[in-house]
Amino acid sequence: MSPLDHAESEDLLRAAGLRSTAPRRSVLQALEDHPHETAAGLGDLLRAAGHHLSRQSLYNVLEDLTGAGVLRSIQPAGSAPRYETTVDDNHHHIVCRGCGSVQDVPCAVGSAACLTPASTPGFPVVEHADITWWGLCTTCAAAPGSDHDTAAHPRRNA
């Protein structure tokens, strides 16, 4: 991803109705460089870059940015919430069941997976579907002794 410069971060925050603060810009930059990161991972990245935010400040920034639609939060099964800056499309995700890495998957065009529910009792407005695929990344699939048996992992058969 291309890094956000200071002015782009400010414009993005102001367009969302937020003040442009150093912690918010730092979080945006960290997520541009490391998409799908957890709050704990972001804290480590920010400290390594010389930005010292308390845990509470980091969570406040993530809540503000997610609430304003600047960030998207996803939570694959068994994972802490992960954050990304790609919010303007309906992409999906694939998660490595070995190392937990997450990658974006563009939405299929044409006959897509079940994106339209057959019925939505009590929900007259349906906005989008979140689809998560599970598999092994290249590194984990090549690891000696990697387990390819889906019978032992029910989530793989879902």
Rank of each mutant, 00 (worst) to 15 (best):
E37R: 14
E37I: 00
E37N: 07
A39H: 09
A39C: 08
A40M: 11
A40D: 14
A40R: 15
D44S: 11
L45H: 07
L45Q: 06
L45D: 03
L46Q: 07
L46C: 09
R47M: 06
R47T: 15
A48P: 12
A49Y: 02
A49E: 03
G50S: 06
G50H: 07
G50L: 01
H51A: 13
H52C: 11
H52W: 02
H52D: 15
Q56Y: 13
L58F: 02
L58A: 06
Y59T: 09
N60C: 13
L62Q: 03
E63C: 12
D64S: 11
D64G: 08
L65S: 05
G67T: 03
V70K: 11
V70E: 00
V70C: 04
R72L: 10
R72D: 10
R72M: 12
S73P: 06
I74S: 10
Q75K: 14
P76F: 13
P76V: 09
S79E: 15
A80K: 09
P81F: 12
Y83M: 01
E84M: 13
T86S: 15
T86C: 14
T86A: 15
D88I: 04
H93Q: 14
V95Q: 11
V95K: 12
R97H: 15
C99T: 00
G100Y: 03
Q103P: 08
Q103N: 13
D104G: 15
D104H: 14
V105Y: 08
V105P: 02
V105I: 06
P106E: 10
P106F: 11
C107T: 00
A108Y: 04
V109S: 06
G110R: 04
G110C: 04
G110N: 02
S111P: 14
A112W: 04
A113V: 00
A113L: 09
A113K: 09
A113R: 11
T116P: 04
T116E: 08
P117Y: 01
P117K: 04
A118S: 12
S119W: 07
S119I: 13
T120Y: 04
P121H: 03
G122E: 01
P124R: 14
V125M: 13
V125H: 08
V126T: 15
H128A: 10
H128F: 07
H128N: 06
I131L: 14
T132R: 03
T132Y: 12
T132N: 05
T132G: 10
W133R: 09
W133M: 11
W134S: 14
G135F: 13
L136A: 06
C137R: 10
T139E: 08
C140L: 04
C140D: 00
C140W: 05
A141D: 02
A142P: 02
A143N: 01
P144S: 11
G145M: 06
G145E: 09
H148V: 12
H148Q: 12
